[in-house]
Amino acid sequence: MWKWLHPYAKPERSYQLCQTLLPWFAVLGGLSLLVGTFWGLAIAPADYQQGEAFRIIYIHVPSAILSKTLYCTMAVAAFIGLVWQVKTAFMAMVAVAPVGAMITFVSLITGAAWGKPMWGTWWEWDARLTSQLILMFLFIGVMSLYKSFEDPQQGGKAAGVMAMVGIINLPIIHYSVEWWNSLHQGATLLKMDKPSMATEMLWPLLVCIVSWALVSGAIFLLRLQNELLRREIKRPWVVALVLNNNESNNTASAVNKE
Protein backbone atom coordinates (compact mmCIF):
# COMPACT_ATOMS: atom_id res chain seq x y z
CA MET A 1 0.00 0.00 0.00
CA TRP A 2 2.71 2.40 1.13
CA LYS A 3 4.95 1.63 -1.84
CA TRP A 4 2.15 2.16 -4.28
CA LEU A 5 1.04 5.37 -2.61
CA HIS A 6 4.39 6.89 -1.95
CA PRO A 7 5.05 8.61 -5.29
CA TYR A 8 1.64 10.29 -5.13
CA ALA A 9 2.43 11.69 -1.72
CA LYS A 10 4.43 14.22 -3.69
CA PRO A 11 2.11 17.07 -4.69
CA GLU A 12 3.70 17.35 -8.10
CA ARG A 13 2.98 13.75 -9.00
CA SER A 14 -0.58 14.03 -7.71
CA TYR A 15 -1.09 17.09 -9.87
CA GLN A 16 0.11 15.23 -12.94
CA LEU A 17 -2.08 12.25 -12.11
CA CYS A 18 -5.10 14.57 -11.87
CA GLN A 19 -4.14 16.10 -15.20
CA THR A 20 -4.03 12.67 -16.86
CA LEU A 21 -7.28 11.42 -15.36
CA LEU A 22 -9.30 14.60 -15.71
CA PRO A 23 -10.16 14.40 -19.46
CA TRP A 24 -11.37 10.82 -19.09
CA PHE A 25 -13.63 11.60 -16.18
CA ALA A 26 -14.88 14.83 -17.74
CA VAL A 27 -15.62 13.47 -21.22
CA LEU A 28 -17.06 10.11 -20.19
CA GLY A 29 -18.97 11.71 -17.34
CA GLY A 30 -20.42 14.48 -19.47
CA LEU A 31 -21.50 12.10 -22.23
CA SER A 32 -23.04 9.53 -19.93
CA LEU A 33 -24.79 12.25 -17.96
CA LEU A 34 -26.44 13.52 -21.14
CA VAL A 35 -27.37 10.03 -22.30
CA GLY A 36 -28.57 8.82 -18.90
CA THR A 37 -30.62 11.91 -18.10
CA PHE A 38 -32.27 12.06 -21.52
CA TRP A 39 -32.96 8.33 -21.45
CA GLY A 40 -34.38 8.50 -17.97
CA LEU A 41 -36.43 11.67 -18.32
CA ALA A 42 -37.70 11.28 -21.87
CA ILE A 43 -37.49 7.69 -23.10
CA ALA A 44 -37.98 5.37 -20.14
CA PRO A 45 -41.64 4.43 -19.53
CA ALA A 46 -43.60 6.18 -16.78
CA ASP A 47 -44.36 4.30 -13.57
CA TYR A 48 -47.85 2.78 -13.50
CA GLN A 49 -48.38 3.91 -9.91
CA GLN A 50 -46.52 7.19 -9.59
CA GLY A 51 -46.77 8.38 -13.17
CA GLU A 52 -44.20 10.87 -14.40
CA ALA A 53 -43.25 11.93 -10.87
CA PHE A 54 -41.13 8.85 -10.43
CA ARG A 55 -38.60 10.20 -12.96
CA ILE A 56 -36.95 12.21 -10.21
CA ILE A 57 -35.32 8.95 -9.15
CA TYR A 58 -32.86 9.46 -12.02
CA ILE A 59 -31.47 12.35 -10.01
CA HIS A 60 -32.38 11.36 -6.49
CA VAL A 61 -30.99 7.85 -6.42
CA PRO A 62 -27.56 8.66 -7.96
CA SER A 63 -27.11 11.60 -5.58
CA ALA A 64 -28.21 9.57 -2.55
CA ILE A 65 -25.86 6.70 -3.38
CA LEU A 66 -23.00 9.01 -4.20
CA SER A 67 -23.32 11.15 -1.07
CA LYS A 68 -22.44 8.23 1.19
CA THR A 69 -19.73 7.03 -1.17
CA LEU A 70 -18.17 10.47 -1.10
CA TYR A 71 -18.24 10.56 2.69
CA CYS A 72 -16.44 7.21 2.71
CA THR A 73 -13.92 8.55 0.18
CA MET A 74 -13.32 11.54 2.40
CA ALA A 75 -12.82 9.33 5.44
CA VAL A 76 -10.44 7.02 3.55
CA ALA A 77 -8.40 10.05 2.49
CA ALA A 78 -8.38 11.26 6.10
CA PHE A 79 -7.28 7.83 7.30
CA ILE A 80 -4.40 7.70 4.81
CA GLY A 81 -3.40 11.21 5.87
CA LEU A 82 -3.51 10.45 9.58
CA VAL A 83 -1.82 7.06 9.50
CA TRP A 84 0.82 7.52 6.82
CA GLN A 85 1.10 11.28 7.27
CA VAL A 86 0.52 12.00 3.61
CA LYS A 87 -0.07 15.69 3.06
CA THR A 88 -1.81 15.27 -0.28
CA ALA A 89 -4.33 12.90 1.30
CA PHE A 90 -5.60 15.77 3.46
CA MET A 91 -5.82 17.93 0.37
CA ALA A 92 -7.88 15.22 -1.31
CA MET A 93 -10.13 15.08 1.75
CA VAL A 94 -10.62 18.83 1.63
CA ALA A 95 -11.35 18.64 -2.09
CA VAL A 96 -14.01 15.93 -1.68
CA ALA A 97 -15.93 17.51 1.20
CA PRO A 98 -17.80 20.32 -0.63
CA VAL A 99 -18.62 18.01 -3.56
CA GLY A 100 -20.11 15.55 -1.10
CA ALA A 101 -22.02 18.24 0.76
CA MET A 102 -23.46 19.59 -2.48
CA ILE A 103 -24.55 16.16 -3.67
CA THR A 104 -26.09 15.39 -0.30
CA PHE A 105 -27.97 18.65 -0.62
CA VAL A 106 -29.22 17.65 -4.09
CA SER A 107 -30.42 14.33 -2.72
CA LEU A 108 -32.28 16.13 0.07
CA ILE A 109 -33.96 18.58 -2.29
CA THR A 110 -34.96 15.87 -4.76
CA GLY A 111 -36.08 13.65 -1.90
CA ALA A 112 -38.30 16.42 -0.60
CA ALA A 113 -39.63 17.15 -4.07
CA TRP A 114 -40.43 13.49 -4.51
CA GLY A 115 -42.14 13.47 -1.14
CA LYS A 116 -44.70 16.04 -2.28
CA PRO A 117 -46.54 13.80 -4.82
CA MET A 118 -45.80 10.64 -2.82
CA TRP A 119 -46.74 11.64 0.72
CA GLY A 120 -48.42 14.95 0.03
CA THR A 121 -45.87 16.86 2.10
CA TRP A 122 -42.53 18.47 1.34
CA TRP A 123 -40.83 17.03 4.36
CA GLU A 124 -41.47 13.71 5.96
CA TRP A 125 -39.27 12.46 8.81
CA ASP A 126 -38.50 9.41 6.79
CA ALA A 127 -35.46 7.38 7.87
CA ARG A 128 -33.53 7.99 4.66
CA LEU A 129 -34.20 11.69 4.43
CA THR A 130 -33.29 12.09 8.08
CA SER A 131 -29.99 10.25 7.76
CA GLN A 132 -29.27 12.26 4.61
CA LEU A 133 -29.85 15.46 6.61
CA ILE A 134 -27.48 14.31 9.33
CA LEU A 135 -24.94 13.31 6.69
CA MET A 136 -25.04 16.86 5.36
CA PHE A 137 -24.38 18.22 8.86
CA LEU A 138 -21.39 15.88 9.12
CA PHE A 139 -20.01 17.19 5.81
CA ILE A 140 -20.56 20.80 6.87
CA GLY A 141 -18.89 20.09 10.22
CA VAL A 142 -15.74 18.76 8.59
CA MET A 143 -15.65 21.66 6.12
CA SER A 144 -16.14 24.39 8.69
CA LEU A 145 -13.60 22.86 11.04
CA TYR A 146 -11.04 22.94 8.24
CA LYS A 147 -11.92 26.52 7.34
CA SER A 148 -11.59 27.66 10.96
CA PHE A 149 -7.86 27.02 11.04
CA GLU A 150 -5.40 29.52 9.69
CA ASP A 151 -2.81 26.84 9.04
CA PRO A 152 -4.30 24.54 6.38
CA GLN A 153 -2.03 21.69 7.45
CA GLN A 154 -3.29 21.85 11.02
CA GLY A 155 -6.84 22.29 9.75
CA GLY A 156 -6.47 19.24 7.54
CA LYS A 157 -5.42 17.07 10.47
CA ALA A 158 -8.21 18.34 12.70
CA ALA A 159 -10.84 17.87 10.00
CA GLY A 160 -9.37 14.42 9.35
CA VAL A 161 -9.97 13.38 12.96
CA MET A 162 -13.55 14.65 12.70
CA ALA A 163 -14.09 12.77 9.43
CA MET A 164 -12.90 9.58 11.14
CA VAL A 165 -15.22 10.14 14.09
CA GLY A 166 -18.00 10.71 11.58
CA ILE A 167 -17.37 7.55 9.58
CA ILE A 168 -17.34 5.43 12.73
CA ASN A 169 -20.63 7.03 13.70
CA LEU A 170 -22.28 6.89 10.31
CA PRO A 171 -23.46 3.25 10.55
CA ILE A 172 -24.62 3.84 14.12
CA ILE A 173 -26.52 6.94 13.05
CA HIS A 174 -27.99 5.15 10.07
CA TYR A 175 -29.08 2.19 12.15
CA SER A 176 -30.46 4.25 15.02
CA VAL A 177 -32.45 6.50 12.69
CA GLU A 178 -33.98 3.52 10.90
CA TRP A 179 -34.87 2.05 14.23
CA TRP A 180 -36.32 5.33 15.49
CA ASN A 181 -38.31 5.60 12.30
CA SER A 182 -39.75 2.13 12.57
CA LEU A 183 -40.76 2.87 16.17
CA HIS A 184 -42.57 6.06 15.36
CA GLN A 185 -43.93 5.49 11.87
CA GLY A 186 -44.58 1.80 11.63
CA ALA A 187 -45.13 0.56 8.08
CA THR A 188 -47.56 3.28 7.08
CA LEU A 189 -45.18 4.85 4.60
CA LEU A 190 -44.73 3.70 1.09
CA LYS A 191 -41.38 2.08 0.67
CA MET A 192 -39.23 4.10 -1.66
CA ASP A 193 -37.47 1.23 -3.32
CA LYS A 194 -39.45 -1.21 -5.35
CA PRO A 195 -38.29 -4.79 -4.93
CA SER A 196 -38.08 -5.16 -8.68
CA MET A 197 -37.69 -2.57 -11.34
CA ALA A 198 -38.41 -2.98 -15.01
CA THR A 199 -35.24 -3.28 -17.05
CA GLU A 200 -36.12 -0.36 -19.30
CA MET A 201 -36.27 1.77 -16.14
CA LEU A 202 -33.22 0.23 -14.54
CA TRP A 203 -30.73 0.74 -17.36
CA PRO A 204 -30.98 4.52 -17.56
CA LEU A 205 -30.72 4.59 -13.75
CA LEU A 206 -27.46 2.65 -13.87
CA VAL A 207 -26.12 5.00 -16.56
CA CYS A 208 -27.11 7.97 -14.40
CA ILE A 209 -25.38 6.55 -11.34
CA VAL A 210 -22.17 5.93 -13.28
CA SER A 211 -22.31 9.37 -14.88
CA TRP A 212 -22.83 11.12 -11.53
CA ALA A 213 -19.85 9.26 -10.12
CA LEU A 214 -17.70 10.28 -13.11
CA VAL A 215 -18.79 13.91 -13.05
CA SER A 216 -18.21 14.30 -9.34
CA GLY A 217 -14.89 12.56 -9.86
CA ALA A 218 -14.01 15.20 -12.46
CA ILE A 219 -15.07 18.04 -10.12
CA PHE A 220 -13.03 16.44 -7.36
CA LEU A 221 -9.95 16.23 -9.59
CA LEU A 222 -10.30 19.90 -10.55
CA ARG A 223 -10.72 20.91 -6.91
CA LEU A 224 -7.72 18.82 -5.89
CA GLN A 225 -5.61 20.48 -8.58
CA ASN A 226 -6.70 23.88 -7.31
CA GLU A 227 -5.92 22.93 -3.75
CA LEU A 228 -2.49 21.60 -4.76
CA LEU A 229 -1.64 24.80 -6.64
CA ARG A 230 -2.96 27.05 -3.89
CA ARG A 231 -1.07 25.28 -1.13
CA GLU A 232 2.17 24.79 -3.05
CA ILE A 233 2.17 28.16 -4.78
CA LYS A 234 5.71 29.00 -3.68
CA ARG A 235 7.25 25.67 -4.60
CA PRO A 236 9.49 25.43 -7.66
CA TRP A 237 7.29 22.95 -9.51
CA VAL A 238 4.31 25.34 -9.51
CA VAL A 239 6.49 28.20 -10.69
CA ALA A 240 7.85 26.00 -13.50
CA LEU A 241 4.33 24.97 -14.43
CA VAL A 242 3.15 28.56 -14.66
CA LEU A 243 6.18 29.62 -16.70
CA ASN A 244 5.63 26.70 -19.08
CA ASN A 245 1.98 27.60 -19.52
CA ASN A 246 2.83 31.22 -20.23
CA GLU A 247 5.39 30.20 -22.78
CA SER A 248 3.06 27.92 -24.69
CA ASN A 249 0.34 30.58 -24.56
CA ASN A 250 2.74 33.15 -25.91
CA THR A 251 3.86 30.94 -28.78
CA ALA A 252 0.24 30.11 -29.54
CA SER A 253 -0.75 33.77 -29.72
CA ALA A 254 2.35 34.53 -31.78
CA VAL A 255 1.29 31.88 -34.29
CA ASN A 256 -2.19 33.33 -34.39
CA LYS A 257 -0.87 36.79 -35.16
CA GLU A 258 1.15 35.54 -38.04
Binding site: E150, D151, P152, Q153, R231, E232, K234
Partner: peptide, 14 residues
Protein backbone atom coordinates in the same frame (compact mmCIF):
# COMPACT_ATOMS: atom_id res chain seq x y z
CA UNK B 1 23.24 14.81 24.35
CA UNK B 2 21.12 16.20 21.59
CA UNK B 3 21.46 16.41 17.87
CA UNK B 4 19.27 17.43 14.98
CA UNK B 5 19.49 15.87 11.56
CA UNK B 6 18.12 17.88 8.61
CA UNK B 7 15.28 19.31 10.66
CA UNK B 8 12.62 21.14 8.63
CA UNK B 9 9.43 22.76 9.86
CA UNK B 10 6.54 24.03 7.76
CA UNK B 11 3.98 26.43 9.17
CA UNK B 12 1.05 27.93 7.30
CA UNK B 13 2.45 26.28 4.16
CA UNK B 14 5.61 28.33 4.61
Amino acid sequence: VLSADNLSVVKNDR
